[in-house]
């Protein structure tokens, strides 16, 4: 019997307490003892070690036996795989867009734009995308592997995460107040990146103290934007209140952008850049400040245009929805 005991504990070592290891061990032992007894009866002699060895050999290696009891042969099972794929795609997409935007900003604010700097920024962008995607993949897999093992079966249906596609939806006119989900997701991603940039997370040392006075206001607008977008994503349609919030927010954005447009020197040229400007440079420090003011103005005018378009769209939507009623 000693071999059976050792065999059972070998199997047990390969099981988790969570799976009911003790119970499985107990059941396995009782089964093996039954089988051994039966063999002894058939052979007409008491069970001996040779019989035990033969039995265990037939029953299979402890590895094999433990595997049959493993309810989770998957790292991420078919139950969670669809939502895993969705989130993975979304995150990869967001990371790539986000880092690309950062690179473009770095290129745009790099004065003077020298070949070596461009190579450095673009090279940095490629390495960053690669390392961030690998890290993001790791974290997402880890999260889902934990979810796979901790979230009970009840409550999570594969169908909940799969779009129930109805061919009839092709024939239907789109709802006049329906939100464009893709636009909202883009907006959320970009607003988050904007928040990160102006709050200094990416360490771009170009914002002056004058600019910093505007940061709380910009943050307020951005956060309202994100909250509104998330709310709209869930509700899927515009209504009067969300349109009014949108109008107020876009108006605020325009006012803020106009005030900033009238404020000079929002950006500074980092000291290390200033030190590197050769005295013989034809542009000089003055020139750099002029270029930085100009690029800020271009960005702000762009913001004003976009916000105005959004404002008008929300206004028209509001009027149309009233007319329909």
């Amino acid at each position: 019997m000693k071999l059976i005991d050792r065999y059972v504990s070998e199997v047990g070592k390969r099981l988790l307490a969570l799976q009911g290891r003790e119970d499985i061990e107990k059941e396995l032992r009782s089964t093996l003892e039954d089988m051994l007894e039966e063999r002894a009866e058939k052979a007409g002699k008491p069970a001996d070690e040779a019989m035990e060895i033969e039995l265990l050999k037939e029953y299979g290696s402890p590895d094999e036996v433990a595997t049959t009891y493993n309810p989770h042969p998957y790292l991420i099972g078919p139950r969670l795989f669809p939502i895993f794929l969705k989130i993975l795609k979304l995150v990869f997409f967001g990371v790539t867009i986000g880092l690309t935007v950062v690179m473009i900003i770095q290129l745009a604010t790099q004065t003077p734009l020298m070949g070596s700097a461009v190579t450095e920024i673009v090279g940095g962008w490629i390495t960053k995308i690669f390392s961030t995607l690998v890290a993001a993949f790791g974290y997402i897999v880890l999260t889902f592997a934990i979810l796979e093992r901790t979230v009970p079966d009840l409550g999570i249906n594969k169908e909940d995460f799969e779009d129930k596609w109805d061919p009839a939806s092709l024939a239907k006119e789109p709802h006049p107040d329906a939100v464009k989900r893709i636009d909202l997701i883009f907006e959320i991603v970009f607003t988050f990146i904007g928040l990160a940039i102006i709050n200094g997370i990416f360490n771009i040392p170009i914002f002056s103290d004058i600019f910093r006075q505007f940061v709380p206001w910009i943050n307020t607008v951005f956060i309202i934007e994100i909250l509104l977008d998330i709310y709209l994503l869930r509700k899927a349609v515009w209504d009067t209140i969300t349109r009014i919030v949108k109008i107020v927010m876009e108006t605020g954005t325009i006012v803020l952008a106009v005030i900033m447009l009238r404020t000079p020197n929002l950006l500074t040229v980092p000291n290390e850049v200033l030190e590197n400007i050769p005295d013989t440079s034809s542009i000089g420090v003055e020139g750099f400040l002029r270029i930085s003011n100009l690029s800020v103005a271009i960005v702000l005018i762009f913001v004003i245009v976009v916000a105005s378009v959004e404002l008008i769209k929300a206004g028209i939507g509001l009027i149309k929805s009233y007319r329909r009623k």
Partner: peptide, 29 residues
Amino acid sequence: GTLYPLLRRLEGQGLLESVWKLEEARPRR
């Protein structure tokens, strides 16, 4: 290797019930 895990799984799904009994000095589920 197929039957025992299956029985446990069916019990987990609530289709079977199980109880340990001591028989001939041997516990059986």
